[in-house]
Computed example of a mutant assay.
Amino acid sequence: MRKFAVGSVAVFGSLLVALAGSQAKAATPDLAQAQAVINAHSQIPDFVPPGPPFDARKCMAGKSLLSIPTSSSIPFVDGIENSMGSVAKQVGFKFQQWKNQGQPTQWVQGMAFGIDNKFTGIDLMGGIIPNALAPQVAAANKAGVKVFATHYSDTTQPADPAVAVTLRIPFHEVGEIIADWITLKTGGHANVLIVGSSDILPSKPYADMLGATLDKVCGPGCKHRYVTVTVPTWSTKIQTTVQGALIADPTINYIVPLYDSMSQFVIPALTLTGHRKNVKIATFNGTPFIIDMVRRGDVEMDIGESLGWIARSILDGEMRNMCGLPSIGETLYVPLYIFDKDNAKDAGIPADFDRGYGDKHVAGYAKLWGMQ
């Protein structure tokens, strides 16, 4: 949930706030700059080993990993978990997902399960802020269980010193790419509604960069504002909130759900307000059913991050730590790739979690781990 991170114990009600804009806007849209950024993320990504090779099967023999996602009900997050399970099986170590519906009490129960069952490591994946489980993290450390925090924060945000490994995603770069896309598509005349979740840690740097890039690149002909809906209320609050925004300002021409699974609740609002054809959706994560929406024309673009690539990058960092190998940094190695109407079919029909990005990462990680 640079897939996509989701969830924390902080809870904010739905509210509409203005994004702080840059004091110095571009006099005219910088379409050349925007095009250069889009071109850079429209190429099938290559694989570059993130660190030195190691024998994963040998060093992970007898070890185990419990992964606690922010919420198993979010398709993107659950897709990463399923992919991690498949890859762990190939490597040959025990992996278990702690299924939950995003409730902090369920995360606490998962931590207790991991400690009591003496897992080698516990992964807090997709948005759980370690500090929200500080007593449980401390208990795991005392019991000799390593705790990892992955895909939960932006690379501009500090790592949590209580966990063994933090693996972050540059969400702010996603904001820049989406803003450049909208600048190109509108020719510098965008009115953007950004739909985020303030209880997701990287939402602020992500949305701030999106707004700042619109100010800088799109120029004075562009407007943007931000509405926040907490993760547990996506299914009940996104549609009504978007409807209200469209009724209040019918000149909105782009909606950016920061996390693409939100799009399923945005589309009914467009239909009911009569804006289905004139308001476009640009988003991020690459969840398969949203890529299907891109192929059908319901969503204009989705910046994808291969769930199989995310899973392998997470496991690479965690296995190195559990095997006592040197750290290779605190950033997930996951390229960002744009899906639109021209290439969405490459992800499969229906779309698959790991298609459309090429397969260089599959062979790349297998070779890196000594498995071929």
Results as ranks from 00 to 15, higher is better:
218 C>W: 04
246 L>D: 06
157 Q>G: 07
198 S>L: 07
219 G>S: 09
296 R>Q: 14
286 G>L: 04
332 L>R: 08
112 A>L: 12
282 A>K: 08
156 T>C: 06
223 K>N: 13
67 S>N: 11
40 A>Y: 11
206 Y>I: 08
347 A>R: 06
294 V>T: 04
340 D>W: 04
171 F>R: 01
63 K>G: 01
252 I>W: 03
270 L>G: 02
51 G>F: 02
177 I>E: 03
136 Q>D: 11
74 I>G: 05
313 S>C: 05
329 G>H: 04
226 Y>W: 11
130 P>Q: 00
186 T>Y: 03
37 V>S: 04
133 L>V: 03
17 V>Q: 13
130 P>T: 10
89 K>Q: 05
164 A>I: 08
341 K>Q: 15
151 H>T: 12
2 R>C: 03
113 F>I: 09
167 L>A: 13
130 P>W: 02
206 Y>S: 09
97 Q>T: 15
228 T>I: 02
230 T>I: 14
121 G>F: 12
324 G>W: 03
33 Q>F: 14
246 L>E: 03
194 I>S: 07
371 M>L: 15
271 T>Q: 14
5 A>P: 03
21 G>P: 02
204 K>V: 11
168 R>W: 01
294 V>W: 11
218 C>S: 03
317 G>S: 15
286 G>I: 00
264 Q>A: 10
216 K>H: 09
139 A>E: 07
4 F>R: 02
178 I>M: 10
165 V>T: 13
244 G>D: 09
277 K>E: 13
153 S>Y: 12
261 S>G: 08
368 L>C: 13
277 K>H: 07
140 A>K: 04
46 D>G: 13
337 Y>F: 06
43 Q>G: 00
256 V>T: 05
90 Q>D: 10
337 Y>T: 04
16 L>A: 10
366 A>T: 04
148 F>S: 00
273 T>W: 01
321 N>V: 14
38 I>D: 10
282 A>C: 06
277 K>N: 13
147 V>D: 06
63 K>R: 14
305 E>P: 02
65 L>Q: 06
173 E>L: 00
1 M>E: 12
38 I>M: 14
219 G>T: 09
158 P>V: 06
315 L>E: 08
174 V>N: 08
123 D>G: 10
245 A>C: 13
2 R>P: 00
156 T>P: 02
260 D>Q: 01
238 I>C: 11
187 G>N: 13
183 T>H: 06
308 G>D: 01
259 Y>P: 06
132 A>P: 05
50 P>D: 02
205 P>D: 00
131 N>A: 15
360 K>F: 08
270 L>W: 09
351 A>S: 02
364 G>N: 12
99 K>C: 12
55 D>E: 01
319 M>V: 14
209 M>W: 03
343 N>D: 09
77 V>A: 15
102 G>D: 03
199 D>N: 15
322 M>Q: 13
52 P>M: 15
95 F>P: 12
301 M>G: 12
170 P>E: 01
76 F>Q: 11
221 G>P: 08
214 L>N: 00
234 W>F: 15
234 W>E: 08
121 G>P: 10
130 P>L: 10
287 T>L: 08
